[in-house]
């Protein structure tokens, strides 16, 4: 359908997340950035986009009202409150929306777990950075060991990677991450903890998943976790297994570390990178579906 065989997309929000996503989109074989949209032409993100030769607009959501045919898919990298305003407008225009805010309007999606479910939705919510990191592991635990009595995830991130939005919305981060854990594991008791560490040089994002299970079959779990990690590494190159599943003090424990790709954001900001990598995996899958291109490999079935 598209002569260039690339799906035109727009990025709404020109902060750190939006600008890093732009660098990723420019590298994509199936996406092209038709418009980079914000409110302020003087912002650092706008300057970066301009320097990369990307079309920019400071008209915010009005850019889409004025030019409804500019793209097929929109990444919303603004805020939960703004997303509630943007969504009805974009919905009417038939745009696929990938929501990186914690607004939770759409289907919560973690590509390694429910890519296909996400493809059926018009509004896909990317949960949280900690959710992208931890729910695949939690899912692997619940799929392998059956009933999980209790699941808990702890993410430690570098202070410098947590902007004002993250800091003021920690409660929403916790609630959304817990909701995703419950959705993907079927466990009714989930807890998420977030720790900011100001150490210099900055720490990489580190996430630990703890679980209480009746039957801690470690050899089976080890294989399942390693398979899941490989699946994530297909779209999050910096995702590493640090501690394979152990049974310690009456609990299962798995630890991973995420280093970012260092596109626009520093490498330590693995937390920001992973949600962008997940959004890219989602958007590229939509692009292949809409362009009728074959997937390079069966991602969800892989490993």
């Amino acid at each position: 359908m598209d002569v260039s065989r690339k799906l035109p997309v727009a990025i709404l929000g020109t902060g750190n997340i939006g600008t890093d996503l732009l660098v990723k989109v420019l590298r994509s074989e199936v996406l092209e950035c038709a418009l980079f949209v914000g409110r302020n032409l003087q912002s650092t993100g706008m300057a970066k986009a301009s320097s990369l030769g990307v079309r920019i607009s400071d008209q915010s959501i009005d850019a889409f009202v004025r030019n409804p045919d500019c793209c097929k898919l929109v990444f919303d990298c603004t805020s939960a409150r703004d997303h509630l305003v943007h969504w009805p407008i974009l919905q009417k225009q038939g745009k696929i929306v990938i929501d990186l805010t914690p607004a939770k309007v759409g289907t919560m999606c973690v590509p390694a777990v429910n890519l296909q479910e996400g493809l059926q939705a018009q509004n896909v919510n990317m949960v949280t950075c900690g959710g992208q990191c931890s729910t695949p592991l939690a899912y692997a635990i619940s799929q392998t060991l059956g009933k999980v009595e209790y699941i808990e995830v702890v993410s430690s991130i570098a202070s410098r990677s947590a902007g004002p939005g993250t800091r003021i919305n920690i409660d929403e981060y916790i609630e959304t991450t817990q909701e995703a854990l419950e959705k993907f594991t079927g466990c009714g008791r989930a807890k998420a903890i977030l720790v900011l560490n100001p150490a210099q040089p900055c720490i990489d994002m580190q996430t630990t998943v703890f679980a209480k299970v009746a039957n801690p079959d470690l050899p089976r779990l080890d294989a399942a976790v390693r398979a899941m990690v490989a699946k994530l590494q297909a779209y999050v190159p910096g995702y590493q297994l640090v501690i394979p599943p152990i049974y310690e003090n009456g609990r299962i424990m798995v630890m991973v570390r995420v280093q970012g790709m260092g596109d626009y954001l520093p490498k330590y900001a693995g937390n920001l990178d992973i949600i962008n990598c997940a959004a890219m995996a989602m958007a590229e899958e939509f692009a292949r579906k809409l362009l009728g291109a074959p997937a390079p490999r069966d991602r969800e079935g892989a490993a």
Binding site: V154, S156, I193, V195, L196, N197, P198, A199, I203, Q206, T208, V242, I243, I246, E248, M253, M255
Partner: peptide, 17 residues
């Protein structure tokens, strides 16, 4: 040395291993 802060008890196991 790693400048662990409150709430990072999981690091203890990482360090011990």
């Amino acid at each position: 040395r790693r400048r662990a802060v409150a709430g990072q008890e999981d690091l203890i196991i990482d360090v011990a291993i």
